[in-house]
């Protein structure tokens, strides 16, 4: 049907029978259009900040997945290298009794540095986000877990005497060491350059009662989170195993202070 015919028919229809029934599908699609029109008002507050150009997003994702694959390979190589070092240390310790003390001391430092898996009692803190209330004008960002929240909790746990801390998200667990980083990257949180999403499990080895009390004290680090529907659950554990730090610990610049002769 050409535009002229339609125009004529529409004109005649307005002259004659004024009430034309709209088809049900048009009305249903209008409803769907209305629902879609509400989308900007629901999504824009979540994505505060500069949006990424759509053309580069796919390229970035591809590059990121390649880097992650390379990272996994390097982690495997690193673990193999550490295994070799451990076996060499073991043979050294076996060969010389005098080196036993040195080996013990080294083992202690390796635990402190996060280079060895570690075992002991402690707590598991689970942080979960929940649906934000549909309050018009409410800042939805407040209802998300941010780097500051994790940093505050980790600081509080260290202060309470934790000897080892690890953060788990889904199937990835990252041990925290002195060079560990926790920072927001878009809607995700990077822990030791591993992207993590809620819910988070924070494991800490130490005196379980001290750790529990430090986290649950009034006006503590967890209390403000409850206001924003971020739930926390603390479980005291008799025994748990935290993995070793999987990143690189190679020092390029820092070295021991040379003693003056």
């Amino acid at each position: 049907m050409t535009s002229v015919e339609v125009g004529n028919e529409m004109k005649s229809s307005t002259n004659g029978n004024r009430k034309k029934r709209l088809s049900g599908m048009t009305l249903i699609l209008s409803l769907a259009l209305g629902i879609m029109l509400a989308l900007p008002f629901k999504v824009i507050p979540r994505n505060s900040g500069e949006p990424l150009p759509s053309e580069s997003r796919q390229e970035l994702l591809n590059r990121m997945s390649k880097i992650e694959e390379e990272n996994l390979l390097l982690v495997t190589e690193l673990e193999q290298g550490r295994g070799t070092i451990a076996s060499l240390e073991e043979s050294l310790a076996q060969g010389e009794e005098a080196s036993q003390g040195l080996s013990d001391q080294m083992s202690r430092y390796r635990i402190l540095a996060g280079l060895d898996p570690v075992q002991g009692p402690g707590i598991r803190l689970t942080l979960s986000e929940h649906e934000s209330p549909a309050i018009p004008g409410a800042d939805i960002a407040n209802y998300l877990i941010h780097q500051e929240d994790l940093l505050n909790i980790v600081n509080e746990i260290w202060l309470a005497g934790a000897e080892a801390i690890a953060i788990r998200s889904r199937n990835r667990t990252e041990r925290l060491i002195n060079t560990s980083t926790i920072r927001c990257v878009g809607s995700l949180i990077d822990v030791n350059n591993t992207r993590m999403t809620p819910p988070f499990d924070i494991f800490a080895i130490g005196d379980a009662d001290d750790l529990y009390n430090a986290l649950t004290m009034p006006w503590g680090v967890l209390e403000p989170l409850e206001f924003y529907n971020i739930s926390s659950e603390i479980v005291k554990m008799d025994d748990m195993v935290l993995p070793a730090y999987s990143g690189s610990t190679i020092l390029q610049y820092a070295r021991q202070v040379e003693e003056a002769e």
Partner: peptide
């Protein structure tokens, strides 16, 4: 009826969490 349906749809979309974010922006 069309603007009425659009307004009803907008109200539904605004007050209910419809998972639009599952689809990409394109």
């Amino acid at each position: 009826a069309i603007p009425v349906m659009v307004i009803i749809g907008f109200t539904i979309g605004y007050f209910f969490n419809i998972p639009f974010n599952l689809a990409g922006s394109k």
